[in-house]
Amino acid sequence: MGDSTSESDGDGTVATDGGSVYEERFIPYINTWGRRTNLLAVALSLGPAVVLLSVFGILPPTQAIIGAFVSVAGAFGIFWIVEPISYYPVLGVPGTYMAFLSGNISNLRLPCAAAAQESADVETGTPEASIISTIAIGASIIVNTTLLGIGAVALVSAFQALPELWRSALESYLVPAVFGAIFAQFGRDYPKVAAIGFSIGLAMTLSLELGLLAFLPGFPLYAVIVVSVFGTILAARWMWEQGLIESPTRMDD
């Protein structure tokens, strides 16, 4: 490692300053490789479409592709922007590249990153937390790619042999439990912010269900996400400025 020499000739300042290793070496490296791999994935994700065209000679009419794309963009396009921006504060730079490449963000990546930060005892939002998130998300990718690969080939029939009750239970009740658990984990440190966040989220969801958001264009689920995340952030910031909450930094003194 050529770069390890730089710390041996100094008096240890580089090695002890975690922030500079993170900002000056780790993040630029991640940005370079994150961009490369995610753009490569854009190209390679066309694989099945290309095989359907080149091997089987099937290409749908352009009109059908455009029509379908416009519908999908109308329904989901707002999430292309809203989700990366909303989840970035939690995922950090490496986590954003990894999570949006591998998908299943709310039910898999975020919970794994959060649980790992708790067990490695690092402060959310710090460079150390970002490192731990990267490692945890990497581990979760190994698990779910392998499991889904085996599942797609072999486990499908085994799962279908499960009684209907357990099949639907796995689909319906595991994810809500994860949501409750992670919410509680962060709520322990900031109970007041949790109460406000929960009120905002529930109020927005119920408004959506009751059609109170119908004045917004499209299906206004995006408004629920944006208001929940940024409303909670702004509320927390205001409370912090008023001295109502403080960061639970381990003040040893």
């Binding site: 919410f183 962060f186 709520g187 912010v193 409303g231 927390a236 910031r237």
Partner: peptide
């Protein structure tokens, strides 16, 4: 403020998911 903001973002996101 960064840890506070990050935790608040997490709480807001999961409040949305669980609601």
């Amino acid at each position: 403020l960064i840890p506070v903001v990050s935790s608040a973002a997490m709480l807001g996101a999961f409040a949305y998911f669980l609601s």
